[in-house]
Design a protein around this nucleic acid. Structure first.
Lengths: 194, 194
DNA sequence: AAATGATGTTAAACTAGATTAACATTTATT
DNA sequence: AATAAATGTTAATCTAGTTTAACATCATTT
């Protein structure tokens, strides 16, 4: 299997020797999921974090009214998991479902613990990855408070132009925290005012 | 100075030898801030993360209209910083200001890099800290989407009972993403309906 | 004790976004 | 090609939360 995407990604943060690369790839597992399959299900304990090689997933929370709230989309060269469930080994709050056929690399709990002890540098890698994710998450909280839905939509389009094209509009509405009807209204307003 | 609070905190995640503890405390710096002083200012590059020994801070974003949006409160045994600015060494998006006289331990960029190389275990510590912070941050995004302001207020009171007592109500409103007037309304509704 | 500033409350008018419902368009299935 | 299922749009009505403004309370300074 092709090692390139993961190695290129990792090399942005740390440098591995050839031997370390071999250790890494001896422990991880490739997996293929079909469109609509679940990688994580709300209520199950999530036992892996996954690096996406191709495809697209959504992570969402289903509330008591049965409404879906999308936390994040993930595509190639990014990660997906319910990290909260993974790190504390408690039932997942979220679902992760494939929006396209998706190929990924799984790091299970055991895999990761072994890797951390054999290649301590990976501790740094994952610290840096989570740092960035945390910063993005905090930015999103503030945006949700201080910007209107229209402004948030424009930022979303700018930030994730690829995702805009690949997923249905009603899911983008869910990610933005608005209804699909209101997103429709925003889009028609944007078309008129230019 | 008293090493106990930081060591007790660290011991929840990793174990340090006596020698490692000494290295740690030889590199960090204690600081005292007065009420209302700024630890980080929007626009400056943030060059430390701080562990709070006593006191209370707010981290907030000031929008173009001059409105303050509180991202998080921090009290004893927790951290404060603009992590985004700190890790990428770019101008801070947020302010961190003391709400009480505040005593803290500063980890500067250099301090941390030295510590990581002398005590690699600390890499793991900070990975775990950021993991938890990230999970809490994602939970908050979902709560803001799927719960009403009243529900969010009740959860806030439950989760941070100490903070509720210590900071003015209008700042709690800001943290919840609502106006102080609406928080007042919520509180009077809660008093009537019981 | 009076005065000033910071914080908190109440109520009326307003608005961003939700809800409901009907219809339009695109995609998948037979 | 026809039908069904999924996705997207429009418009009317409704509501959670905002805005404005006046007033109340509490703390600090003189």
């Amino acid at each position: 299997m092709n090692r390139k995407p993961l190695l290129e990604y990792i090399n942005k943060y740390i440098n591995l020797t050839i031997e370390e690369e071999d250790i890494l790839f001896s422990k991880i597992r490739y997996r293929d999921y079909l469109k609509d399959q679940y990688i994580v299900q709300q209520g199950d304990v999530c036992n892996s974090v996954c690096f996406i090689l191709s495809g697209c997933t959504k992570m969402f929370y289903m509330d008591k009214e049965g409404q879906e709230h999308i936390v994040i989309f993930s595509i190639e060269d990014w990660w997906t998991s319910d990290l909260g469930s993974f790190i504390s080994q408690t039932p997942a709050d979220y679902n992760v479902q494939c929006l396209e056929n998706t190929q990924l690399i799984q790091f299970t709990n055991n895999t990761l613990e072994e890797l951390y002890s054999e290649i301590p540098k990976l501790e740094r890698l994952f610290r840096k990855i989570v740092e960035r994710a945390f910063v993005a998450s905090q930015k999103r909280i503030i945006r949700n408070f201080s910007l209107t839905a229209k402004e948030r939509y424009l930022i979303f389009k700018e930030t994730y132009p690829k995702i805009e094209q690949r997923v249905p509009q009603y899911m983008i509405a869910s990610y933005l925290g608005i209804t699909k009807e209101f997103l429709s209204k925003i889009k028609s307003q944007l078309i008129q005012n230019q």
